[in-house]
Amino acid sequence: MKSKILVGLQFFIIFLMILPLGTPTKHLSAGLMILMLGIITGLLAVKEHKRGNFNIRPDIKENCELVTKGIYAYIRHPMYLSVLLSMLGVTVIYFTYYEFVLYSLLLVTLLVKLLYEESLWQCHNPAYATYMQKTKRLIPFVF
């Protein structure tokens, strides 16, 4: 149930963020570059998954495998980073206080989702503790 609420909240916030409520700012190029970086990060993450291993909810799927290669060798949650970068790009393009507040809510939601997912992985797979020691959560070499 917690997973469904977190995913629902995530998509609701993203929906509100992409509503055309503002006009593009003078930072359109920077926003588009950040947005593209987010999309590329997401594609790199999806590339490493075997068919049926990817899950949008933080729940651990039956027979899933821990992915530790490619972008996952550096960060544990590249899909969350992908969402955060993409929506940061949207925030830069359509910067308003409304967008900033929504981005902050999205960040908090994804951090809660990330921590919940990590707690599930630690219970599900003993190798996850070792993987956590070798990688960062979202930002390579930083966090």
Results as ranks from 00 to 15, higher is better:
residue 2 K to T: 00
residue 3 S to W: 03
residue 4 K to C: 00
residue 5 I to Y: 10
residue 7 V to I: 11
residue 8 G to F: 01
residue 9 L to W: 05
residue 9 L to E: 05
residue 9 L to K: 04
residue 16 L to P: 10
residue 19 L to A: 10
residue 23 T to H: 05
residue 27 H to L: 13
residue 28 L to R: 11
residue 29 S to W: 11
residue 30 A to L: 15
residue 34 I to P: 12
residue 35 L to F: 15
residue 40 I to A: 10
residue 42 G to C: 05
residue 42 G to N: 07
residue 45 A to H: 04
residue 48 E to W: 04
residue 48 E to A: 09
residue 50 K to I: 00
residue 55 N to K: 09
residue 56 I to H: 08
residue 59 D to S: 11
residue 60 I to D: 02
residue 68 T to Q: 12
residue 72 Y to H: 10
residue 77 H to P: 02
residue 78 P to M: 03
residue 81 L to K: 01
residue 83 V to F: 09
residue 83 V to E: 02
residue 84 L to N: 05
residue 87 M to R: 02
residue 90 V to M: 12
residue 93 I to L: 02
residue 98 Y to R: 09
residue 99 E to Q: 15
residue 99 E to N: 14
residue 99 E to H: 14
residue 100 F to H: 02
residue 101 V to T: 13
residue 102 L to P: 09
residue 102 L to H: 05
residue 104 S to Y: 08
residue 105 L to T: 09
residue 108 V to D: 08
residue 108 V to S: 13
residue 109 T to N: 15
residue 111 L to C: 01
residue 113 K to Q: 12
residue 115 L to R: 12
residue 117 E to M: 07
residue 118 E to C: 09
residue 121 W to H: 14
residue 127 A to K: 14
residue 128 Y to G: 12
residue 131 Y to V: 10
residue 131 Y to L: 11
residue 132 M to H: 07
